[in-house]
Structure formats: C-alpha cells, structure tokens
C-alpha cells in the first residue's frame, strides 16, 4: 500500500470539488435545507404538543448525525462515479493504484466533506434554532465513527453494484441513503417502525448509533452496549462491503465490463 498514491487520490478529488459548484451543494446547500426542514418541523410539532420535551433537538441532532453517514457514503460513491462520468476508469485501472488505495483516498477525502457539512449544519442549526452540536459532548465521536464506517461501507458496496450492473445502477448511490435513513431510526426509536421491518432495523449498526444519540439527548450516559454493537456491526459491514466489491470487481474483469466505461 502506498500512502503517496492515497494522497494523490485525495488531491484528484479536491480538484474536482474545487471546480464543480454542484458538488458544493452536497456539503453546503442540502445540509442547510435539511436543517431548515427538520428544525421547522420540530418547532411546529413542539408548538402543538403538550409534552414537556421538545422534539426539535432530536430531529436536528438526528439529521446532523445522518449527514455524517450520507457524506461519507456519497464521497466514496461519487468519487468512483467521477471516473465513470469522465470515462477515466480505464486510465485509472492501468496505473499502479490499487483498489484499496483508491477507496481509501476517496474515503479520506470524504472526511473533509463530512467536516465541511457538519460546519454548515452546526452554524445553521445554531443560527436558526439555537441548537448546539456541542450539547452532545464527546459522545459524538463514537457515534460519528459508527456512522462514518457505515457510510463508507454503503458507498463501497454501491461501487460494486455499479461495476456489475453498469451506470444505470448509480441511482443506488443516492437511493441507499433513503433506505438507511428509513431503517436506522434517525428520528425515532426502532419500535416506531412497522413490526415486520423492525428486525431489519435492528441489524443495522447505524440504528445503534442513533439509539445512543437519543440516550445522550435524553441526558443519560452514553450506552456502551449500543456503541459496542454499533462499532462491531460497522466493521462487519465494512468487511462485507469490501468483500462484495472485490467479488464484483473480479466479475467486472472476468466479463470484460471495462468496455462499458470506456
């Protein structure tokens, strides 16, 4: 493995981000819209509720933390798609860059995008709704770790699907986020989901991260069991994502699918 080549992958994507205004939407505009949407919804519900607990912090913290997963996922997914959109995949495949180095570079660059998006989210959440991200405290770190790894895993698995089924499958890069959002209990505990769907939600590591987040917002200590389950699950998901995409890459090379992208 070459750290230098990983850094060059990051530089390659930094150039793209610098010159692609629509990419700034992902880390600037959509986070802003999400805060406005979920913050306003929380404010409205709180205004019409008799409960002493406001739902606003739960909704805002939920969407903020979900953006960690979302940004990590699309950084990896669109990082790879950038090569297919510019038909540059064969150029990359004929350099010494390994699959791991390429994915590591996009994932590491994704961390920058996560930080930028979090900054946007924090500033707007405080500006519009007086919500402070720091209210979560250091508990944010293990929760963010789980969500980052789940995002990378989903992004890597999506690449495998695009390699196997072609560019038509790239809709999954965005679509998978909606699936993860619905099943991870971002805003609500899993038991609020329809009963038949709850087992799916419980096996997702992201669900444990959001359970932990709600516990912290309730004023309870960070639940160690949720974090442990989330971390273990996240690494299992990462390994599964890598294995799946390595398999799809083998199929891609065996069936000569590279000509689809060149």
């Amino acid at each position: 493995m070459s750290w230098h080549r990983i850094r060059v992958v990051m530089r390659r994507h930094a150039y793209v981000l610098w010159r692609a205004p629509h990419r700034w939407f992902d880390i600037g505009f959509w986070p802003l819209m999400d805060i406005i949407l979920w913050g306003s919804l929380g404010t409205y519900v709180a205004r019409n509720s008799t409960s002493a607990t406001s739902s606003t912090p739960y909704l805002i913290a939920g969407i903020m933390m979900f953006h960690i997963l979302f940004q990590s996922q699309i950084a990896v997914g669109t990082g790879f798609l950038e090569e297919t959109w510019s038909r540059n995949l064969l150029n990359v495949l004929t350099t010494p860059v390994t699959e791991f180095e390429y994915l590591a570079g996009t994932a590491a660059f994704g961390l920058f995008k996560v930080l930028f998006a979090l900054a946007t989210l924090s500033i707007t959440a405080f500006g519009f709704f007086r919500f402070e991200l720091s209210s979560i405290g250091w508990s944010i770190l293990p929760i963010a770790l789980i969500l980052t790894i789940v995002g990378w895993s989903a992004g890597i698995a999506n690449i495998g699907i695009v390699l196997r089924f072609g560019q038509g499958a790239e809709i999954l890069i965005w679509g998978s986020n909606f699936i993860l959002m619905a099943f991870s209990g971002v805003f609500n505990p899993v038991d609020a989901l329809p009963g038949a769907l709850q087992p799916i939600a419980r096996i997702l590591p992201s669900t444990h991260a959001f359970n932990a987040l709600r516990a912290v917002l309730d004023g309870k200590p960070l639940p160690g069991n949720e974090i442990a389950l989330g971390v273990i699950g996240a690494f299992v998901m990462l390994l599964a994502g890598f294995s799946f995409t390595a398999w799809m890459l083998h199929v891609f090379r065996r069936r000569g699918f590279v000509t689809r992208f060149s």
Binding site: R12, V16, R19, A20, E82, W85, S86, R87, N88, L90
Partner: peptide
C-alpha cells in the same frame, strides 16, 4: 488510447 478522455474538471 485515442478513444480515452482525461479526467473532467482538471487542468
């Protein structure tokens, strides 16, 4: 290859 483009958005 004559048919291969280069990365978009990079100088």
């Amino acid at each position: 290859a004559g048919y291969l483009p280069l990365p978009d958005r990079l100088k």
